[in-house]
Computed example of a mutant assay.
Amino acid sequence: MSQTPDQAAQALANGDLILLPTETVYGLGADAGNAQAVAAIFAAKGRPRFNPLISHVVDAKAAAAIGAFGPAACALAEAFWPGPLTLVTPVRDTTRVCDLARAGLDTVAIRVPAHPMARAVLAAFGGPVVAPSANRSGRPSPTTFADAADETGFAAAAAVDGGSCQVGLESTVVSVLDGRVALLRPGAVTRSEIEALVGALADSGEGHRSPGRLALHYAPDAPVRIEADEAKSGEVLLGFGRGVGDPRWSLSPCGDLREAAANLFRLLREADRTHPVGIAVSPIPMTGLGEAINDRLRRAAGFVG
């Protein structure tokens, strides 16, 4: 049963967990400053504690209260917030975002989500909310309320139904540290869109500051085989493009990358429920949003991206 944003905010204030819809994926949320509540997220997800969490806030002013924003960070925030972009900046307030939420780092990952229900919860709560994807660690992220409830609903005191997630992939993560802007995790805000604003991105060894960087991540129970031209015996083929495979399992029959991104985790889950020998996935172009889709697929298949 879905609760209201005010009920979800009260659960957060009580130190409980919630299921939170965003435009990217559903999150399992907690008060970012409450270490016990944050620990409960790790326990529910089975998540390694060295993996930092993203703090979700209602607007750029709230973001600047917990992170140090220079000119490049401000420009990115103005261009892409609210939306599927996370900025990693030096931490400003270590009480509002506890050490456990930051994985002991001197940086903080911050996002202003665009989903109206998420914004209503954040406004009612009045503080940063960490909300990693509401799946058990390593599993495909949930993009529907039913899948979120099935994965970690047992741990949530309140759950807000925001419908299906429009984007369907986790946010792009960009670090802005020491005057360097680097892409830590690709997502719906593409590399070219970021570079058009701030110039060429720096090489970075800062991947540990971003969530979603484990070698095996987003994986269903069935093994995933990528760059597949056809299905082998017992496999389900997730096709891409006209005439590729069974239309029921197509990420995008017309070869649209945004449609493929929105369908990716849902179809991985639905295919997995048929108990196949494996899940094969057609080649996805590396252009634009394809970089993010391929990143998730490489991790689902057990490769380090």
Score class of each variant (00 low, 15 high):
Ala63Trp: 05
Thr22Ser: 13
Leu85Asn: 03
Ala65Pro: 00
Asp59Lys: 01
Pro52His: 04
Leu85Ile: 10
Gly46Ser: 08
Pro21Ser: 06
Phe69Glu: 07
Ala63Val: 02
Lys61Asn: 14
Ala72Ile: 08
Ile54Arg: 00
Glu78Phe: 04
Leu17Ile: 10
Pro82Trp: 09
Val58Phe: 03
Val38Pro: 04
Gly46Gln: 09
Ala77Ile: 01
Pro48Lys: 06
Leu76Val: 04
Gly33Asn: 03
Gly83Val: 06
Cys74Pro: 00
Thr24His: 09
Ser55His: 03
Thr22Gly: 10
Pro84Tyr: 13
Asp6Asn: 12
Gly33Arg: 01
Pro52Cys: 09
Glu78Arg: 13
Ala60Ile: 14
Gly67Leu: 05
Ala62Tyr: 00
Ala8Gln: 06
Pro21Met: 11
Gly15Phe: 11
Ser55Asn: 05
Val38Gln: 05
Ser55Met: 05
Val58Met: 01
Glu23Leu: 11
Ala35Trp: 09
Gly70Ser: 06
Ala35Glu: 15
Asp59Ser: 04
Asn51Glu: 15
Lys45Ser: 10
Asn34Val: 12
Ala62Lys: 01
Val58Gly: 00
Pro52Ile: 06
Arg47Pro: 03
Ala72Met: 14
Ala11Pro: 07
Ala39Cys: 09
Asn51Ile: 11
Ala79Glu: 13
Ile66Leu: 06
Phe80Thr: 00
Gly27Trp: 08
Lys45Tyr: 10
Asn51Asp: 15
Ala77Thr: 01
Ile66Glu: 01
His56Ser: 06
Ala35Phe: 08
Val25Tyr: 02
Pro52Asp: 05
Val57Pro: 00
Gln36Asp: 15
Ala39Ile: 05
